[in-house]
Design a protein around this nucleic acid. Structure first.
Lengths: 203, 203
DNA sequence: GTCTATATTTGGATAGAC
DNA sequence: GTCTATCCAAATATAGAC
């Protein structure tokens, strides 16, 4: 009897088509805005009729969800490649730079992952779980650095998104806010170490 | 000869209709999302045919712009009512509370005024000028408190929008991030006064 | 100023032949 | 899996009667 071949050429072609569709979706979202994305435009770019997209995705929402999952996965993967040294200032900066860099390098992806501005769309539980994992990793890292108050984790994410949000909204393509990251981290580290003995002056 | 009456009833009726349209626009943007706003839905609420709206607004963009102007005006007016005492910690908190309160009490308004997520819309120069005025007022206030580095103004707005953004995106209706405002202000004030002599310990 | 009528475009989605 | 054909709905916008 003939066993199943190692490579499934049909599945590979299908996956390639899916990848192409998503690539086009990202591109067009960048051009027209995330909320302005349309199946017709995607189909036009990949050389299909709009209806043919339904062979790959059940709905427009499903495309948004696949984009969300892809973005969240990419963030998580990059995050796991970060190298930490155990020093608070250094490691906080590593996370902060990664976060800010990732978000500003693709504002549309930031909007999809971290804001709630697409009417009617919310990520599926499976896709959302990827994001939750990222946040948990950051939380665990902060704890390992001695930052164990959950409020300080929330403050950290707020500072990050604040710089990113202002950068994207008010100086797109520039660095008016991202260049403040160093200062912001100094400020944050000073805050979480206040009165802890570390770096405190003995009067 | 008959002089012009003090009150122009026709103009008053027209203004009332405009107000009603905008009120409905805000309401529907809250229900369907800002990007999901439609002239049909507005017309339905105010008891008109969609086409009749064109007697009041040239386009859908013009409605967005009127909403923008109204929001910006409201922010500026409320801002001018704030009372300051000259103490940095107190006055920064006054501004911060106002900013966070204003934005979180109406997330759609925040999205329209402070983010850039509506494909194809940007405020007219006249409307935008109102926002600029608000930012200038905050900047002047910070300077009067001795915070004269423009970077520190940008850092301040970043912290504010960061708390607001996280609050709206990840805990809508709650206070998980807004309750961190006090801590955030402590952190910020400590940062801008670092090494300034004020509050510094003499070793 | 509001309506009817209509133009025009665009969008998401389904049925069925090939 | 892709196509043709279509549907249906919704959207913005204009012309002209009343």
């Amino acid at each position: 009897m003939s066993g199943r071949p190692i490579r499934d050429r049909k599945t590979e072609r299908r996956q390639a088509a899916i990848d192409e569709i998503l690539e086009s979706a990202w591109h067009l979202a960048g051009e027209e805005g995330l909320a302005g994305l349309s199946l017709r435009a995607i189909a036009g770019e990949v050389g299909m009729r709009p209806q043919s997209l339904y062979s790959y995705f059940d709905s427009k929402s499903a495309i948004y969800d696949a984009m969300y999952a892809e973005g969240a996965r990419r963030f998580l993967d990059g995050q796991q490649d970060l190298e930490f040294v155990g020093d608070m200032r250094t490691d906080i900066e590593t996370i902060g730079r990664y976060f800010v860099g990732f978000c500003t390098e693709d504002p549309v992806r930031y909007q999809l992952l971290f804001q709630r501005t697409i009417p009617g769309f919310e990520p599926s539980p499976e896709s959302f779980a990827i994001s939750v994992q990222s946040l948990e990793l950051i939380g665990a890292r902060l704890i390992s650095l001695g930052i164990d108050d959950p409020r300080d984790l929330d403050l950290f994410t707020a500072i990050g998104t604040g710089l990113i949000d202002q950068q994207i909204s008010n100086d797109p393509g520039g660095d008016r806010w991202t260049r403040l990251l160093d200062d912001a981290i100094d400020m944050y580290v000073a805050h979480v170490t206040r009165g802890s003995g570390v770096g405190r002056r003995t009067t």
